[in-house]
Simulated assay, not measured.
Amino acid sequence: MISMPDRAEMAKDRTDLAEDRTVLAHERSFAGWVRTGMAAVGIGVGFHALFESLNPTWVPKAIATAFLLIAIFIFLSAERRACRILDNLDPHNVAVIKPIRIRLLSWALAAATAALGAALWLLVRV
């Protein structure tokens, strides 16, 4: 005779699966914010490339720098949010990105964006 799981066990399984879905949804949200930050970097670099001949020369650099600063803010705020949420959730049947990897990725993207901003200002037009 096959025994049926009791209601409490089934409810726990449903709760565990819901928490796993929530973890995965937050990972997708983090990836979306990273894409948004990368888009801000692209807009900044593209703006600088298109309007580099404007006078005074600091205007396109300042506008590009604003987009780069927005990207850095997006990377770091996405990292803080993702790590805070993942600390509060307990995955059961899914492999999740470790918070240290999220931090490393976010800080590496922020550092690379800052370096790009510095390069824009140090770039000498010929």
Results as ranks from 00 to 15, higher is better:
Met1Asn: 08
Met1Arg: 12
Ile2Ser: 08
Ser3Gly: 09
Ser3Glu: 15
Ser3Tyr: 12
Met4Val: 09
Pro5Gln: 15
Pro5Arg: 15
Ala8Tyr: 05
Glu9Asn: 08
Met10Asp: 07
Asp13Glu: 14
Asp13Phe: 14
Thr15Arg: 10
Thr15Lys: 15
Leu17Val: 11
Leu17Pro: 03
Leu17Ser: 12
Ala18Lys: 11
Ala18Asn: 08
Glu19Tyr: 07
Glu19Ser: 12
Glu19Met: 14
Thr22Gly: 05
Val23Leu: 12
Ala25Gly: 14
His26Met: 09
Glu27Trp: 07
Phe30Gln: 05
Phe30Leu: 10
Ala31Glu: 15
Trp33Phe: 09
Val34Trp: 02
Val34Met: 13
Val34Leu: 12
Met38Lys: 14
Met38Ala: 10
Met38Asp: 15
Ala40Lys: 12
Gly42Asp: 03
Gly46Arg: 14
Gly46Asn: 10
Ala49His: 10
Leu50Trp: 08
Leu50His: 15
Leu50Asn: 13
Leu50Glu: 07
Ser53Pro: 00
Leu54Gln: 11
Leu54Gly: 01
Asn55Pro: 01
Pro56Val: 10
Thr57Val: 05
Thr57Leu: 03
Trp58Thr: 03
Trp58Ala: 05
Val59Phe: 08
Pro60Arg: 08
Pro60Met: 11
Pro60Thr: 03
Lys61Gly: 02
Lys61Trp: 00
Lys61Glu: 01
Ile63His: 04
Ile63Pro: 01
Ile63Lys: 05
Ala64Gly: 01
Ala64Ile: 00
Ala66Lys: 12
Ala66Met: 13
Ala66Val: 10
Ala66Pro: 01
Leu68Trp: 01
Leu68Thr: 00
Leu68Glu: 01
Leu68Pro: 01
Leu69Gly: 04
Ile70Asp: 13
Ala71Ser: 04
Ala71His: 02
Ile72Gly: 00
Ile74Met: 06
Phe75Glu: 08
Leu76Ala: 04
Ser77Met: 06
Ser77Thr: 13
Ser77Gln: 10
Ala78Asp: 03
Ala78Gly: 02
Glu79Gly: 02
Glu79Leu: 05
Arg80Trp: 09
Arg80Lys: 11
Arg80Val: 05
Arg81Val: 11
Ala82Ser: 14
Cys83Phe: 02
Arg84Pro: 07
Ile85Leu: 08
Ile85Asp: 08
Leu86Thr: 06
Leu86Trp: 06
Asp87Glu: 14
Asp87Tyr: 04
Asn88Asp: 15
Asn88Ser: 12
Asn88Gln: 11
Leu89Lys: 12
Leu89Asn: 14
Asp90Asn: 14
Pro91Lys: 09
Asn93Arg: 15
Asn93Ala: 15
Val96Ser: 15
Pro99Ser: 04
Ile100Leu: 06
Ile100Asn: 08
Ile100Phe: 05
Arg101Ala: 12
Ile102Gln: 03
Ser106Val: 04
Trp107Ala: 05
Trp107Gln: 12
Trp107Cys: 08
Ala108Phe: 07
Leu109Pro: 00
Leu109Tyr: 01
Ala110Phe: 05
Ala114Asp: 05
Ala114Gln: 06
Ala114His: 02
Ala114Asn: 04
Ala114Gly: 08
Ala114Val: 06
Ala115Phe: 03
Leu116Arg: 03
Leu116Gln: 04
Gly117Arg: 00
Gly117Ala: 03
Ala118Ser: 00
Ala119Met: 02
Trp121Thr: 02
Leu122Cys: 04
Leu122Tyr: 02
Leu123Ile: 00
Leu123Ser: 02
Arg125Ala: 13
Arg125Ser: 10
Val126Tyr: 04
